[in-house]
Design a protein around this nucleic acid. Sequence first.
DNA 1: TATGAATGAGGCTTCATTCAT
DNA 2: GATGAATGAAGCCTCATTCAT
Lengths: 185, 185, 185, 185
Amino acid sequence: MPLQKVSKEELIKKVLPIFKQKGYHNATMSELAQACGVRNALFYYYFKDKEDLMAEVLQFFKTRSTQKLKAMVEDQDLSLGEKVQAFVQFLEGAYLGSFNGCIMANISLETAFDEPAFLPILKSFFDDWIASMSTLFLHKFQPEIAREMAEATVQDIEGGILLMKLYKDKHYLEKALNRFVKLLA
Amino acid sequence: MPLQKVSKEELIKKVLPIFKQKGYHNATMSELAQACGVRNALFYYYFKDKEDLMAEVLQFFKTRSTQKLKAMVEDQDLSLGEKVQAFVQFLEGAYLGSFNGCIMANISLETAFDEPAFLPILKSFFDDWIASMSTLFLHKFQPEIAREMAEATVQDIEGGILLMKLYKDKHYLEKALNRFVKLLA
Amino acid sequence: MPLQKVSKEELIKKVLPIFKQKGYHNATMSELAQACGVRNALFYYYFKDKEDLMAEVLQFFKTRSTQKLKAMVEDQDLSLGEKVQAFVQFLEGAYLGSFNGCIMANISLETAFDEPAFLPILKSFFDDWIASMSTLFLHKFQPEIAREMAEATVQDIEGGILLMKLYKDKHYLEKALNRFVKLLA
Amino acid sequence: MPLQKVSKEELIKKVLPIFKQKGYHNATMSELAQACGVRNALFYYYFKDKEDLMAEVLQFFKTRSTQKLKAMVEDQDLSLGEKVQAFVQFLEGAYLGSFNGCIMANISLETAFDEPAFLPILKSFFDDWIASMSTLFLHKFQPEIAREMAEATVQDIEGGILLMKLYKDKHYLEKALNRFVKLLA
DNA sequence: TATGAATGAGGCTTCATTCAT
DNA sequence: GATGAATGAAGCCTCATTCAT
């Protein structure tokens, strides 16, 4: 009756939105399993424990994001304007689709103090994101300034995502993205 | 051994940093009690349940913050520059003291989806904060612009607090505060 | 502000219906106190503990019932018919007023196994009740038969009270009382 | 150590006498588990919560009783006398084996006021019991009379079980059963 | 008399995890 | 791969009780 051969990646993909929505501690293995149409115990075939599962989810998200960002930024066929546009579209696609926010920010705030296991992945995600943005700003600004603008932009966006989640109102993020565009217009 | 006369407000004050550090779900009643030098059950004398305790903690923080911010902004004896300076000092005092971030942001991201009980308090906190900042920006900008700058500044600061908590590095928040000052210089 | 001088008997009287309704274990000291307009701790001034309180309530009920029954049965001025009528009126008054049943039966079934402290009082209540009824039946039947009829009648009535409480329908008890009357008509 | 394959029905059967003895509120999940040689948490694999467990226990008892009673009453091969005899034997087997009484009566009195969840099962048990007895009485009496006699007999028996439990003396129930037999002799 | 503050024990329940199948 | 059955630890909460005032 089972025999669906649920792959590891499938599990990760189906589990991600739930961790995003409910956070690490508040998402139970049972509801994660249910979301995958799978019994609780199967996770322990693929993952050592809940922490490992969470880590792989974060890693998955990070890898995918970083790849796309890098691809955009390094694409020789795109003008700066096109890159910015692509960047914004990517961010819209990633964060504007629901009011559940950014899994990396959510898990950062929830676990930064308690679960050092996730820190390297989380940091490396923001490292890459800021680095990509820096590269864009370098088209128009000095390195140091570019770096600060990248950080400020990421902060503006993450703050916008926070308010968006809280108020269930997308304009906070949209305006942050507009500000980003204007800085490079 | 009993009879220390621990007041409700004392409990709230002692419990706040733990909720800030560990979040709502991950903070156990036991550790909250331990932090207060009190047995678990006493909380249920003063508070209906954990949710009620959390709500009162948030309310306490919100009320205190709002009062101070309003006082600063409305103080007739202060110049704009002095107000900005006071504002920044307040924010430094509130968020730069530890790497545990902002309890309102932490709890917002953790519970916005699941626990509607906290939403009104959390929203009203950010409402007031943004409103106070708007008032400052109104000294130099048109209402609509002032409002957007207030929102952007809050987002920048909250994003900075996020990165500060993640990297255990205060410069993200410090730079955000600098940017705020510059906007009103 | 307090100073109502709540007497022991008042407490017993106000507490009785709650024990009848909710039973011994399921009635909390807090709700008992609330029903008396008094704080929890006051009970421990008058009573050793919950068990003692329950015992005194049962004793109170038993004493009052027994007195009335004896008075009826021994009243020289009443004919047998009048005695039976008085008896029935007493039982109607005691059990037909609510659907909460008979405190002595409720507590018997709930605690017979666990709390020997109540047994003597409970037994003595039923002893007296059956004895009184026996006396009535002796007017018309041989001692042994009278005794059996008394027991059977008490059983019929208590069974009726059980079904009355369960179905919230008074006819079970009413019919049992009718049968009793007929036996002595 | 795990892996004894304790079935749901086994749990129900082992748990039943404890609920009968101690009642619903006073029986703890721990002692129920201990009686089954199982850890506390297993119950929550099979049952939603304590209430659900209790309900399934009552349902189990009710179903089994009803089946047997119906079988007896409807058995074409038995004479009225044999049916009555079988009926009495069944009741003796069910209630005369211990001094813990009738679980349906015990739980009725304890929970009729507070836990409506059990009411339908409890009522339907007594409905069926009274209906079966009515059928027997119909052999000799008019419908209305038969129904009253059935109710009266159930009340007599349940009252007898009450006194039996209280006095730890089986004669109350035995005599009630004798009276039942005589009515149909 | 009466209470406010406090507690210890224990109750129900959830959860991550295991392991034989 | 996948699951059903089981568990130990821990979580939130309630309750009877105490005692200084």
